[in-house]
Design a binder for these strands. Sequence first.
DNA 1: AATGAATGAGCGTTCATTCAT
DNA 2: TATGAATGAACGCTCATTCAT
Lengths: 216, 216, 216, 216
Amino acid sequence: MHKKNINLNINSKFKGVPTQIKNPELVRKRRRQIVDATARLIVEHGYHKTTTRMIAKEAGFSIGSLYEYVRSKEDVLYLVCEAIHIEAEREIKGALAGVNSKGTLAEMVRGYFRVCCNMSDHILLLYQSTQYLPSHRKDQILENERCIIGIFIQALQRSSDEGDFPGLDLKSASLIGHDIAVLGQMWAFRRWSLAKQFSIDDFIEEQTQIIIRLVS
Amino acid sequence: MHKKNINLNINSKFKGVPTQIKNPELVRKRRRQIVDATARLIVEHGYHKTTTRMIAKEAGFSIGSLYEYVRSKEDVLYLVCEAIHIEAEREIKGALAGVNSKGTLAEMVRGYFRVCCNMSDHILLLYQSTQYLPSHRKDQILENERCIIGIFIQALQRSSDEGDFPGLDLKSASLIGHDIAVLGQMWAFRRWSLAKQFSIDDFIEEQTQIIIRLVS
Amino acid sequence: MHKKNINLNINSKFKGVPTQIKNPELVRKRRRQIVDATARLIVEHGYHKTTTRMIAKEAGFSIGSLYEYVRSKEDVLYLVCEAIHIEAEREIKGALAGVNSKGTLAEMVRGYFRVCCNMSDHILLLYQSTQYLPSHRKDQILENERCIIGIFIQALQRSSDEGDFPGLDLKSASLIGHDIAVLGQMWAFRRWSLAKQFSIDDFIEEQTQIIIRLVS
Amino acid sequence: MHKKNINLNINSKFKGVPTQIKNPELVRKRRRQIVDATARLIVEHGYHKTTTRMIAKEAGFSIGSLYEYVRSKEDVLYLVCEAIHIEAEREIKGALAGVNSKGTLAEMVRGYFRVCCNMSDHILLLYQSTQYLPSHRKDQILENERCIIGIFIQALQRSSDEGDFPGLDLKSASLIGHDIAVLGQMWAFRRWSLAKQFSIDDFIEEQTQIIIRLVS
DNA sequence: AATGAATGAGCGTTCATTCAT
DNA sequence: TATGAATGAACGCTCATTCAT
């Protein structure tokens, strides 16, 4: 069921970036190359210092070929951001798979934080580069984000209904959902500072404890 | 005492950006114009779409003059980031002035959150543009940030020592310090999403309550 | 007799544009598709905004196939210009067929003007795009043009010999021949201006009268 | 009086092409360089094979400087077409100056034809390149053209009123005006063909006689 | 004979920076 | 001190053409 949704997502979004190439298999393959290459380059140099020629070279083909698969550098950025969100969604759903019904909120948060840390390069990329997308693309990306926060809100409300965390209204739940999301992503943009005192595992564990204390 | 610190800050950092102009009074005045103009432009257009020509025009002098007061566009960005941090420090210290010794943590946090919301344009600017500073500049900016977090850590430890919040070690206090910092800044980059459910005052109050629950 | 000439023309010019394809029937068919498609596109977008990809698509086959039938975009343009001239020659000869021996000059001119108006899109194409042919191609096209003018010169001299228009030397006849040619083509590049005052039929009739007055 | 009109023209059109440069004297001088260089290059290579780098080099400055004085290559083309029309207007008015009131139509036409021959490179440029202007620019150019034709129409009507050429209605006069205009410009695009039989002076004289015969 | 993915030279344009005045 | 004209490296992108299948 998840799979189906994800596939629908992929398809509906692929329509959003046209291509000159007819073979859809090839489009998938080449765009994967483009996205991987570009993500690597943006992580290293930032969006603006990453030129289309660098992207083509890193992806292993010519500048002309790059433009057979996308219309513009902006398209590439969108494909990258989209791929990161799809990856995040998949990872998070994977991490939550064993937890979903019976699991505790603690396990969910811990799983989410772990994903955030594993993807910190890409999360930082989103923080720094989403600003360069045209607004309709930004909206598409933000929509994805809300979906993730929704998961926490639902879990919080379930907890509340079960009496663990009584008297939680939707508004508060929503804010806590945002907070959890941000406190996980925090590792991405405060790594260098936090790493002086915390290993990744330390961070995940301590931060999880803080959330637990918050909601109990 | 505060003043002295701030002045020291300004001077030590000004040394970092050389100028052709001898008269330091004039340098101060012109750089204030440059910083104000640039901050406005970056908030509106982002760093890369803000050209040096636009900066000179908005600041009210010629492109040639701009380069009498800074060596590069990067210098301008640094001056802007630095100014924002100085402003933030001043505002936060101002907000905490009446609270400092006798006040509760809640009041501190509320004051900080209020400053964050008031400065959200500039905080977002920092989030989006710090990446374009050379790393030694980035370090200078991060150093400033640590200073602010230090305030919370100290307050937390004071609370802990007074028995409000027993058994808080430095490491945990430090992480909570980071968390508070980020949960305040969050308004800057999630405004559009949060504003659907919260007014600024709502946000500040609810978020403050969450922190309070967290540390008690 | 006409047919023979036209065929000779076609053959001698086809030799000028080599192809990879052996089957001459197929070459003829495909090139007709190419020429029609390209003429349509150039009329709408101009030569430079018409890409080879557009041509292939409009003609109904792939870009690869296009290059089996011509060596270059320039070849395509030459084929188009050539085809227009052949078409013009055929149309004009058709219009003059009933007139040729016994008819008056007026009827000839009127017939020619009518053809010019009917073909005005293509005549404009020639005016705007012949410049992009290499000079040996341009010469081939100009040669065709002289052929048409020759018809008027002969008719003028016949008139003169018959006493209608006495004292007409070859040089004058030649210039008037050019003038008639141009005054017909004029509709192509002044349509938008002339159409404010003249319908096509108006134009043809008035312009014919002017020529008649000129040569009597 | 003429001067005033021309100046107004120049000023009103300059407003149409913005520049980064503040000194209007310099703008005038540099744009003259740009227009002269570009006209030379387009005459030799055509509009599309003339690159902006060639223009900058031929004009004697850098590509960056070129773009201080115009926004785009299209702007350059417009400036060229505009300058040619202003030149044509000036030349024609100059040629007609001694003729204006008392002169015969023959002298006017001869003067116009002489100007056309002298400017034939530039007239051909207009025929071939006006198509690349955006339509509002094309309209501006066409407006200029109508102004020239207007001169002939007025002269024809004056002749008619004086009895030289009785029974000439406005519509016919208008068409003859167009015809005269085109028969002069004809030298530009039929030079190579006509020159086989006519020197420029021959052409002007014979063609003038044809017009005279036409209107008497 | 037909396809269409791949190529890369070359285009128009931008903008941080310099320097003569 | 202040100006603003001049610079040119570097950018994103196009499109005629080729060639393996």
